[in-house]
Amino acid sequence: MKSRLICNIIPVLLVAGNVGAAEIYNQDGHKLDINGTVAGVHHFRNSGVDKDNSYARFGFLGETQINPLMTGYGQWQYQAQLGHAEKDSTQESFTRLGFVGIKFAEYGSFDYGRNFGVLYDVLALTDRQPELAGDAFSADNYLSQRGNNLATYRNKGLFGLVDGLDVAVQYQAENRAGETVSEGRSVQYANGNGYGMSIAYDFGFGISATGAFTSSNRTTAQKTLAYGHGGDKANAYAAALKYEAQRYYLAVMYSQSYNLLRFGEFKTTEQKNEQISGFANKASTLEVVAQYLFDVGLTPSLAYVQTQGHRIENYGRQDLRKFIDLGVTYNFNKNMSTFIDYKINLLEGNEFTEKAGIKQDNIVALGLQYQF
């Protein structure tokens, strides 16, 4: 999960105001904003395996007034990785977001497409490090992050009855895996039909709480993996508490999942070479983050992240992620910023981490980005 304070906008913000976007058209109830980021990012590892993680993102957010009670909207965002040769077949370019919907005044909004899962309503509160975020859950992992085939209903203020109380209900249709990439997506990115819900309440004084629950059917291929064959459902529960006032930001998040959290490097049978991969039958994640904004535009960040897998076949309980993150972001202005992010890995190597390909590297990330 590589978060940006401006560009990774939770989709519900589309109908509440566009942050970090340039307005290019606004007339007769029709509005179109564009946003983008170009980031030069490099990762330095103590193992000596460094990497260029530079990327560019571009997208638009649009809305149109259908009648006094209805507003249509849509969002699309595309990303291209920049650390590849032009003819490199492994170059990664992909659609991050793409959905369309209608907002019905105080009755809420409904949209469909590639969107954020409702579990991320909770996870987003601690996903704020400059670069090396707590990536326990990644894209196309059921309803935990960005995913396809998502139908989402959101209501702010509970139909205008309770200020500060927001709810969301979501359904995800099946994204099946195939024996080959051409027949369907890889087994780790597949999902059966699923649903989820979230609720958030603003207590005032800068304090708010968010909770979410998701449940999805697992595919046949996922249930027959050597690791994570413990059930038909992939379920998750998460809760977070946030304090945000003036220049302070503090948040803590805890989640518990079953048959949902991935580990290891998924490869074909010929490529495995004794490596293991699959889903944790049970996993728990704790994330804590604290930030402070200085007048000069400097924001230091401190975070702690730990994810444990439980009941892993042949290995029992294992740490999947455990690190302290120290970061500093400096904003030259609203469009230009730079950062340094230091991940202090606390994992201890053993047979499991070696076979699962879980690295114990410390990482330093340096970046410079332009955004609009």
Score class of each variant (00 low, 15 high):
Ser3Phe: 11
Val15Leu: 12
Leu32Trp: 04
Asn35Asp: 12
Asn35Tyr: 11
Phe44Pro: 11
Val49Met: 03
Lys51Leu: 02
Lys51Arg: 13
Arg57Trp: 06
Thr64Ala: 13
Gly74Asp: 08
Glu86Leu: 15
Phe94Ala: 10
Phe110Gln: 00
Arg114Cys: 00
Val122Gly: 07
Ala136Ser: 11
Leu143Ser: 03
Ser144Phe: 06
Arg146Val: 10
Lys156Leu: 15
Leu161Ile: 10
Asp166Ala: 08
Gln170Ser: 08
Tyr171Val: 12
Ser182Cys: 00
Ser182Ala: 15
Met197Arg: 02
Tyr201Gln: 04
Phe205Glu: 15
Phe205Ser: 15
Ser215Trp: 00
Ala221Val: 02
Lys223Gln: 14
Thr224Gln: 15
Thr224Val: 11
Gly228Thr: 06
Gly230His: 13
Asp232Ala: 08
Asp232Thr: 09
Ala238Trp: 07
Leu241Cys: 07
Glu244Tyr: 00
Tyr248Phe: 11
Ala251Phe: 06
Val252Ile: 11
Leu260Ile: 04
Arg262Thr: 05
Glu265Tyr: 05
Phe266Pro: 09
Phe266Trp: 09
Asn273Gly: 12
Glu274Leu: 11
Ala280Trp: 03
Ala283His: 01
Ala290Gln: 04
Leu293Arg: 13
Gly297Cys: 07
Gln306Ala: 09
Gln308Tyr: 01
Tyr315Arg: 00
Lys322Leu: 01
Thr329Trp: 05
Thr329Glu: 11
Thr338Pro: 03
Glu348Thr: 13
Glu351Phe: 00
Phe352Val: 04
Gln360Phe: 00
Asn362Gln: 12
Leu368Glu: 07
